[in-house]
């Protein structure tokens, strides 16, 4: 499987013979007032979301706590270049390309399917730490749950349409309807291939450089069932940090401050302190 176990393969024929093509990548940034030497954070949004989802609250908050903060839009998302046939490998490539361009070794923070992308990126880049927020690691279980909870949004994805997430899957009732509405209107989509790969993919290789891993989620997430969250955390030999009452989009929901503070506390303790 993946996580801590599994093996790093060093002959990488697809990567060497069919390199991922370059694309324009949107990177949004928030810089701390003074450099305290803390590692840069690179936030990776999930399918449909762009860097904007982190620029809304988390980037500035991280910067206010002295972490240089960056968010990338995966190709085909947000302000990045179009990529209708992108694969998970291309998304992970985007993350690694941005990570190595940062001045120091970065912490990778992935949300939703972006957490799976981060898991792939962690197998290619020795991050200072990895944070998986409401991770969607895919597989048929997740698909079943999505079908039950949101048949209208999930069925079109099977035939190549966009996977649509509903407002009440993403946010708690504490977030005013109008705000939730503007967020869902901003959602785009991942490529059809990547959507399929969410179901069928080779498990990510173990992270290189043995970074500490944190898994964060909500027991009330209507996209990631609690059992899936626990399973992902167990792959990495950790227990998930839970924020009851929150929706899937922890970085946009009304109580967005709690999870990011917990993540930054953990980083301060593990890496800086």
């Amino acid at each position: 499987m993946s996580g801590r176990s599994g093996r790093t393969r060093i002959i990488r024929t697809p990567e060497w013979t069919r390199p991922v093509p370059a694309v324009r990548r949107e990177v949004l940034t928030a810089s701390p007032e003074a450099d305290e030497g803390k590692p840069p954070l690179l936030f990776v949004p999930g399918f449909g979301h762009g860097a904007w989802a982190f620029a809304e609250n988390w980037l500035d908050h991280a910067a206010s706590r002295a972490f240089p903060a960056y968010a990338v839009s995966l190709r085909g998302h947000g302000g990045s270049g179009a990529a209708p046939t992108a694969t998970l490998r291309a998304y992970a490539h985007d993350v690694v390309q941005v990570a190595v361009s940062l001045p120091r070794q970065a912490v990778l923070v992935g949300h939703g399917a972006g957490a799976l992308v981060v898991a792939y990126a962690l197998a290619r880049y020795p991050a200072r730490a990895g944070v998986l927020v409401a991770p969607v690691f895919g597989g048929w279980g997740t698909f079943g749950a999505a079908l039950r909870r949101n048949p209208a949004g999930t069925v079109p994805a099977v035939v190549g349409g966009a996977l649509r997430l509903r407002r009440r899957q993403l946010f708690s009732r504490e977030l005013p309807d109008a705000v939730a509405q503007t967020y869902t209107e901003r959602l785009g989509r991942a490529s059809t291939r990547a959507q399929w790969q969410l179901l069928i993919h080779r498990a990510p290789e173990p992270p290189v450089g043995k970074p500490p891993i944190l898994v964060v989620g909500s027991p009330d997430d209507r996209v990631v069932p609690a059992s899936a969250l626990t399973r992902t955390a167990r792959r990495y030999g950790v227990a998930p940090l839970l924020f009851p009452g929150m929706g899937h989009d922890l970085m946009l929901d009304a109580r967005w401050r709690e999870p990011i503070d917990a993540i930054l506390d953990w980083l301060d303790k593990d890496l800086v302190g």
């Binding site: 990488r12 990567e15 390199p19 370059a22 690694v96 390309q97 190595v100 290619r124 880049y125 450089g209």
Partner: peptide, 14 residues
Amino acid sequence: RPLTEFPDFPMPDT
């Protein structure tokens, strides 16, 4: 480039 770069620190794809 892909056969020359360090496996954990790729050169810019541009």
